[in-house]
């Protein structure tokens, strides 16, 4: 038992390693992953500034909306990481021939995905944090923070649920190769829209907002916004932060559970059909 745990911890560390050093080894990465995402954010900030020049119901809150956009932009980094470097990763791994070597090794597949997730979170956090810092410096956002313990909890639970979802996707992508690529592509702009990356999700109406809440970033982002801009939380927030916190906890457990089972199922399916090792499909 202890040995099995140790094995999986080592496997986790092993798989996280290339992610972590991968980020530091090619430094051009920092430029591409921090400055570039800021451009979209900047464009949306200017849109809000421009819209703020007209008379309108939210004119007095433009400063907060700019903050929301910056926060949303930071979270896109995690979403992209989950879509392309978690979900689609097993597909790349299959193409470059690593997947079969993972599959013959004795560690739990969850450990490999966990390592990928941890490594991914590490380098994505650099991107996310720098988006926030630069955004705050350039556009002068002022926060009115809520209880820090809530902030930390929301952030951690969001990431666990989100990467849990990524693991679930990964198991699907392991078998369905190129189609999965299109799925990731589909889950970009439409999810930016329905999860409220660039405006508070409540304005989509409760039905859309609730449906979109299956994506952990929806509630996570809404809760983060409420906790970082407490003054307008009552006006722009979707659900009470406590409710969102519980929902995120439930999603975390759900996705990890589903991922584990789906991985098993897909691995067996792959062994049955021979798609586990088939390349260039």
């Amino acid at each position: 038992m202890k040995e099995y745990l140790l094995l999986n911890l080592r496997a986790l560390k092993g798989r996280a390693y290339p992610r972590v050093v991968g980020g530091t080894r090619e430094l051009s990465w920092i430029f591409f992953d921090t400055v570039l995402p800021l451009l979209t954010v900047a464009a949306y900030v200017f849109v809000y500034k421009y819209l703020g020049t007209f008379e309108g119901p939210q004119q007095e809150y433009i400063a907060q909306f700019i903050g929301y956009v910056i926060l949303g932009g930071a979270m896109t980094a995690y979403w992209m990481n989950v879509l392309w470097s978690m979900a689609a990763q097993f597909y790349w791994e299959k193409e470059i021939g690593n997947l079969q070597l993972y599959m013959i090794a004795p560690m739990s597949r969850m450990a490999v995905l966990g390592g990928m997730a941890l490594g991914g979170m590490f380098y994505t956090s650099v991107r996310a944090i720098s988006t926030i810092v630069i955004g705050v410096l350039i556009f002068g956002v002022t926060f009115s923070l809520g209880p820090p313990i809530y902030l930390v909890l929301v952030f951690i639970l969001t990431l666990i649920a989100l990467y849990g979802m990524g693991m679930l996707f990964a198991s699907l992508y392991m078998i369905y190769g190129r189609e999965a690529w299109h799925m990731s592509s589909l889950l970009t702009e439409p999810i930016y829209l329905v999860s409220g990356f660039y405006f508070p999700v409540r304005y989509l109406g409760s039905i859309v907002a609730l449906s979109a809440s299956i994506i952990p970033i929806t509630l996570g982002l809404d809760a983060l916004r409420q906790l970082m801009f407490t003054e307008t939380a009552g006006i722009h927030g979707f659900l009470p932060v406590e409710v969102e916190l519980v929902a995120l906890a439930v999603l975390s457990v759900l996705f990890l559970f589903l991922a584990r089972h789906s991985l098993r199922f897909m691995e067996n399916l792959g062994r049955k059909t021979g798609r586990l090792t088939m390349r260039w499909q």
Partner: peptide, 27 residues
């Protein structure tokens, strides 16, 4: 298992790092 002509690991890591990574999958 070793097969001829296979590629394994990550191009960005060194030989030693790649081997170390695989060793970790065996605890």
């Amino acid at each position: 298992m070793v097969s001829g002509g296979e590629t394994s690991g990550y191009g960005l890591l060194t030989t030693r790092e790649n081997l170390w990574m695989f060793s970790q999958f065996y605890g």
